[in-house]
Design a protein around this nucleic acid. Structure first.
Ligand SMILES: [Mn+2]
Ligand SMILES: [Mn+2]
Ligand SMILES: [Zn+2]
Ligand SMILES: [Zn+2]
Lengths: 149, 149
DNA sequence: CTCCAAATAAGAATTATTATTATTTAGTAA
DNA sequence: TTACTAAATAATAATAATTCTTATTTGGAG
């Protein structure tokens, strides 16, 4: 249960040769247990009650460390602030402009279509590292969710 | 020539019922005459020598006004700062991470493929305002350009 | 021309993020 | 175990990007 999850995290950190610290564990957990693409500030808010001595700067630095080690992703948002994403599998994002939410939009078929189309193109002098669709929109009813068929 | 361009700008501003000010004219020109997606600071840098009394805050405010009036677009970048885009026709962006450049990638065929694919999907409670492909990559040779076949 | 709502300049304030530095600690090895 | 040390952290200052405030100016309507 609790100890098993903790064990998984220590394994992940060890595999990247990162020191296992309490701060890294709680930041990692906080990012992993949500799909809301939190900002550094939001990660800090989520963990600070149970970890009163943790510093916001440490949260920023820890998240950066995770990004550098490819444990999480960093994504810019139309609101301007950087958000962090636990999902490592390739996926697209829907930016909800009236709520600042970022939703995942995973679509295997679409990814294949894009791959297939872009592979025919030749981009000289360019090393492509990522290709994703960015959908922007607003919730008609901000208090309700969005479903996709 | 000069006066003709000026005339076009005054017409554009008039059509949006915006007061025609010197500041708006030079900011509009600065954004229009480049495809480099400048930041507010970069727009300010470009115009300040010929307009020593213009204020950076005015540049910010003026760009926002243009965005609200749909004369230009605002786009977030992986570097975190907001950039402004004169091109109003639908197009995609290539973010060059090692030079902070934003390149336009216009592709009618791709746009159609995406439109076509996404129109089959039903997004409930979501009002889609924009769909674009975001390509991220790095220049192999940062001092050279990129060409696409 | 006069007038005034709107725009601007200047600078303060805010927000997001990064840098600095003294202190603490995880992991290593005696 | 304990001692050591490089790395991590806390606290806070600094910076960067953007927005706000307010006194002054001005475009354009009448
Ligand atoms: Mn910033
Ligand atoms: Mn910002
Ligand atoms: Zn995501
Ligand atoms: Zn563009």
């Amino acid at each position: 249960m609790e100890s098993k999850k903790l064990n998984i995290i220590t394994n992940v950190l060890s595999a990247k040769k990162l020191k296992i610290t309490h701060q890294r564990i709680v930041v990692y957990q906080a990012v992993m247990e949500t799909n809301k693409h939190p900002s550094a500030e939001q990660v800090f808010e989520r963990i600070k009650d149970n970890n009163p001595s943790i510093s916001l700067a440490t949260v920023y630095k820890t998240l950066e460390t995770f990004v550098e080690n490819e444990l999480i992703n960093k994504v810019s948002s139309p609101g301007g602030t950087m958000r962090y994403d636990a999902k490592r599998k390739h996926h697209n994002h829907i930016y909800i402009t009236n709520t600042n939410e970022i939703l995942d939009y995973e679509d295997e078929e679409l990814s294949k279509i894009l791959m297939n189309y872009l592979n025919k193109k030749k981009f000289s002098n360019l090393n492509i590292t990522d290709i994703k669709l960015q959908i922007k929109g607003e919730k008609v009813n901000p208090s309700k969710g969005i479903s996709i068929t």
